[in-house]
Simulated scan of single mutants.
Amino acid sequence: MTTIDDLWKQICEIPDDDEPRLRFADEVEASDPVWASYIRMMIRRTAEFRGGESFVDTEQQPHLESGARWARNLLQFVQRGSVDNVHFDRGFPAGIRLHPAVFCEYADLILRLGPIRHVDFSHPYDDDDRPVLDEHGHLARFPLEEVLACPQLARLDSIGFIHTNVGNTGGALIAACPLLTRCLYLDFFYTDLYDESVIALAEGPLTGKMLGMRGDWLDHFSEYSEEGLDDLGEYKKYVFAEKGKKLEQRLGYIPWLHWANARSRYDLRWYFEHGHTPKVKPGTLPPSDDWYTVPPTRYRGREW
């Protein structure tokens, strides 16, 4: 007989399968009907959204009290011990934000306590949640080499280095990491990467094939907007950066340079495995003009 613990283990080991999630909802119906209802609702909404039948938000998060109860075994590991740093997907915790040293030490346990496939690393912080500084008063070094040596990275669908100082050499280290075999998305929001790092990521045997990346620097290589073409700024035009075109002339198609492949990081695995993305096989040469034809964007009721 399958127990609730058996179902939890199945959900953690095969997070893409909805069947054990629905069976889990049946098991907890009597003890926690709110959770059972939430699981079923989010699975249904996600299926409708992915099938193009609905545009309802599929990332609706539970109320804080409920979320804290459902993720209680994980809270000791996340930043500030707060459910705000836990992201739910299809009824269960799927993403967390935490100290890099905590992941390095407890990654295997964390991945057994929940179907976690998305991790955002914070900058190292102390017990009072303040950034750790070095002897010069600067942000302490982010332990990137230690993180990239964790074998559990091979089980993650997306990784974030948001607001960290991985530095310009960090891009090259990440690009060379052989453990990112499952990863489809990297988040470098508010993290400075110079052109050399972006080029290294594009050249990486695994990172060059990823479907999505986020970073302030991405506009210099991919699609960016030109707006304010009149006094009211009523027009918005999207163009493709020449740096990105030159990169693809040498390396072939790079999916994360194209918004056509953009999806929520929590949905990317499904779209990838069902053949919806990438739109072009990575590394395809020669470049096509179609890659750089950005559909017109309606802005304030007008179309460019």
Rank of each mutant, 00 (worst) to 15 (best):
D5P: 00
D6M: 10
L7S: 06
L7Y: 07
I11F: 09
E13L: 13
P15C: 11
D17Q: 09
P20G: 01
P20I: 06
R21M: 05
V28S: 02
E29D: 04
D32L: 04
D32H: 09
P33I: 14
V34L: 12
A36Q: 06
M42I: 02
R45Q: 09
A47T: 13
F55H: 04
V56R: 10
Q61E: 08
L64D: 05
E65S: 12
G67T: 03
A68P: 01
W70C: 08
W70H: 09
A71F: 01
N73K: 12
Q76D: 02
V78Q: 10
Q79M: 04
Q79P: 00
R80K: 13
R80N: 11
G81D: 03
H87F: 02
R90C: 05
F92C: 05
F92Y: 07
P93E: 10
G95K: 08
H99E: 14
A101I: 02
V102A: 14
F103I: 08
C104W: 06
E105F: 03
Y106A: 12
R112F: 06
G114W: 12
H118D: 13
V119Q: 02
H123E: 13
P124T: 03
P124Y: 06
D127T: 08
P131V: 03
L133T: 02
H136A: 14
G137V: 10
G137L: 09
H138A: 08
L139C: 00
F142R: 06
P143K: 12
E145D: 15
V147N: 05
L148N: 01
L148D: 02
A149Q: 08
C150S: 02
P151E: 12
Q152D: 07
R155P: 00
G160Y: 10
F161V: 05
N165S: 08
G171P: 04
L173I: 01
I174K: 06
A175Q: 10
A176R: 14
C177Q: 10
P178L: 13
P178G: 07
L186W: 05
L186K: 03
D187R: 11
F189S: 03
Y190H: 12
Y190W: 13
Y194W: 12
Y194C: 06
T207C: 11
K209N: 13
D216S: 13
W217F: 15
W217E: 06
L218T: 05
F221E: 03
F221W: 15
E223M: 08
Y224I: 08
E227I: 01
D230M: 07
V239W: 13
A241G: 06
K243P: 00
G244R: 05
K245A: 07
K246E: 12
Q249A: 12
G252T: 12
G252I: 11
I254R: 07
A262D: 15
A262K: 14
R269N: 03
E273L: 09
G275K: 09
P278L: 02
L285W: 04
D289N: 08
Y292I: 04
T293R: 15
T293H: 07
T293S: 06
T297P: 00
